[in-house]
């Protein structure tokens, strides 16, 4: 599959074996959606050898910036486009919600803590709670892991967890938070550090990390992230994943997005641990 994807990339702009010119579709943005976008591109590319779909990551902001300066036709974003970003586009963008992502809070499998409230999580990430003992765990310092500030996941976590959805709040991450350049950076540090806590898209979590159950209020029910709890909204950290186009995209781009929204594209969403978007 991967080799096929690379092959598609490498012959971009060239000619397919039928001699027909290969047309490129550039697809850039959210790292959370990278695996997903690559899987779509590979499967769709195999069905349409005349198309070459080049997928790159960099973060939601980078994808939308690329859409604004015209270097990509499809931007992947794990957040909604901001008003100031819309203002920079020549025409109103087309928004397609292609999946739902649940953000999992993960710790080392040996960590005895298995559930937290959002308020506890907020205190932890603000540096108000610094020892696992205060959360019912062992006497050990809490090592905070986060994505870099340019990641849509970081901003989502800041707004929904640290600030508990309060728009007026100016709370920010504790300065000792380790900022990891990638999702894999977070999961691999979690696997080797029993004191670390991090967050990542459910699609990136493996059996080697322990997923915490979360409650959205102090007397609320603790819910573990899963396809069912993300879609029914009972898991507090679930969000939409979007594709943005300029609204003036070519017909083949429109076809591609229609395929993603269809049964085949949504089957891939489910296979990668994300939640298929509801019609």
């Amino acid at each position: 599959m991967l080799a096929l994807g690379l092959l598609n990339m490498s012959c971009g702009g060239g000619r397919s074996d039928t001699g027909e010119a290969v047309r490129m579709i550039q697809n850039t943005g959210s790292d959370t959606m990278l695996q997903l976008a690559q899987a779509w591109a590979e499967t769709y590319g195999a069905l349409h050898p005349e198309l070459s779909i080049a997928v790159t990551g960099g973060g939601s902001g980078a994808g939308i910036a690329a859409l604004i300066n015209g270097t990509t036709e499809v931007a992947n974003a794990s957040r909604r486009i901001k008003d100031e970003e819309v203002a920079k586009l020549p025409s109103p963008p087309q928004e397609h919600q292609v999946a739902v992502d649940a953000l999992a809070v993960i710790v080392h499998p040996d960590n005895p803590v298995s559930q937290l409230t959002l308020r506890q999580l907020s205190d932890v990430y603000q540096g108000k709670v610094t020892n696992w003992r205060q959360l019912g765990g062992l006497d050990a310092p809490i090592i905070l892991l986060s994505r870099e500030t340019n990641s849509g996941t970081h901003v989502y976590f800041l707004e929904e967890v640290l600030r508990l959805g309060d728009k007026e709040s100016t709370d920010i991450f504790a300065s000792q938070t380790l900022l990891m350049p990638s999702s894999v950076g977070i999961t691999s540090e979690i696997r080797r550090n029993p004191n670390a806590i991090g967050y990542d898209g459910l699609g990136y979590v493996t059996a080697e990390e322990k997923v915490l159950a979360l409650a959205d209020s102090d007397d609320g029910r603790y819910v573990r992230p899963s396809v069912a709890t993300a879609r029914d909204g009972s898991y507090p950290l679930a969000r939409g994943l979007f594709l943005y186009t300029s609204g003036q995209e070519r017909a083949e781009v429109k076809d591609y997005i229609a395929w993603i929204m269809g049964d085949d594209g949504q089957a891939i969403v489910a296979r990668l641990g994300f939640v298929a978007s509801e019609k």
């Binding site: 870099e148 300065s175 000792q176 938070t177 380790l178 900022l179 990891m180 350049p181």
Partner: peptide, 11 residues
């Protein structure tokens, strides 16, 4: 350096 220092903007 970016890969191994943790990148926490902390004094």
């Amino acid at each position: 350096v970016m890969m191994v220092t943790g990148n926490a903007a902390h004094v």
